[in-house]
Write a protein that binds this DNA or RNA. Structure first.
Length: 285
DNA sequence: AACATTGACAACCGCGTATTA
DNA sequence: GTAATACGCGGTTGTCAATGT
């Protein structure tokens, strides 16, 4: 049952990579490609490293096409905006920045950019830690019995289905509104001018936030005050999936309305900001 | 010159999810 | 369907050079 046993870590080298190791890894990948499995790569390439370490070294340092130069002001701006929208989803952010790795951006953010922003008084609102979210999720699971776990799995399947339905709803609604709604001028600039107004102005006093899709907005006037920030991120993830779907073309006029109990803010602005960023800088289109 | 501090970045660790037998 | 394993991600730590005292 299961895969063959994992190799022991005993005897494997740790710490900084030598030029010789870099060469061995580069040569191996040049000859056999990346898709041969990181687990078995070190042995085949003659390296005393674990596959994980090899992958990291390749992805963050040796891979051709990496931009290891200093970050430009334009890149700074892009990182700040994407962080505001996506939080510390570094891989997502890196995916929209040509030649930059998630590790690079994360390091730059933690060591330089954040300090720079703090000094300017523009510190973005801190997003929920992804790791903490995971831990909370795990704690819940630990409390659960086997039956609850099973229920969790069932719920997971159900949520997956719901997400697909929601995704389709957003596509339909957004498409239906292309011709109905005029394109908001300079909304991206407005968002930019307000700095992180997506996360700040949309937050309630108790720290909660609310969001909704166009289908919800147009179909009812239900109160969404109790929807929390996680749901906003889920919406953004849906948008993200849509954006990354080659078969789905996203005209800039499409919008999703955003709402909360304090003020009314069009999700369109957020989306448009996001869309503009992706258009200007993405390697995915 | 010696030591302390800071900054930058490489690398590791733990975890969740996907994949596989 | 289940458990073991592989992979990828985010958070954190370690290391080393530059700078300050």
């Amino acid at each position: 049952m299961g895969r063959k046993p994992c190799c022991s870590k005993e005897g494997l080298k740790k710490g900084s990579w030598t030029k010789k190791e870099d060469l061995l890894l580069t040569e191996y990948i040049k000859d056999f490609g990346e898709g041969t499995g990181w687990r078995s790569l070190p042995k085949k390439a003659g390296l005393l490293r674990c596959g994980k370490s090899c992958r990291l070294r390749w992805v963050n340092y040796l891979k051709p096409g990496l931009n290891r130069g200093t970050f430009t002001p334009e890149e700074d701006d892009l990182i700040v905006r994407l962080y505001t929208l996506l939080g510390s989803r570094w891989s997502l952010i890196a995916g929209r920045m040509s030649g930059r790795t998630d590790n690079d951006i994360k390091n730059y953010w933690n060591t330089s950019l954040l300090k720079k922003l703090k000094a300017q008084g523009n510190e973005p609102r801190k997003h929920k830690s992804q790791a903490k979210k995971r831990r909370r999720k795990k704690e819940k699971l630990n409390v659960s019995s086997q039956i609850n776990r099973k229920n969790n799995d069932e719920n997971k399947t159900r949520r997956k289905k719901e997400k697909i339905v929601e995704k389709h709803n957003i596509e339909d609604e957004v498409a239906a509104n292309i011709e109905e709604q005029p394109h908001t001028q300079n909304s991206a600039q407005a968002v930019s001018d307000n700095n992180h107004n997506f996360t700040s102005s949309s937050s309630n006093q108790d720290g909660t936030s609310s969001a909704t899709s166009t289908s919800e907005i147009h179909s009812s006037s239900q109160n969404i005050e109790d929807q929390n920030q996680d749901q906003i991120f889920e919406k953004l993830q849906v948008i993200d999936e849509l954006l990354l779907n080659d078969n789905f073309l996203f005209p800039p006029e499409k919008y999703i309305e955003f709402n909360n109990n304090e003020n009314h803010m069009l999700f369109e602005e957020i989306y448009e900001e996001y869309f503009q960023l992706v258009y200007e800088n993405s390697c995915h289109f």
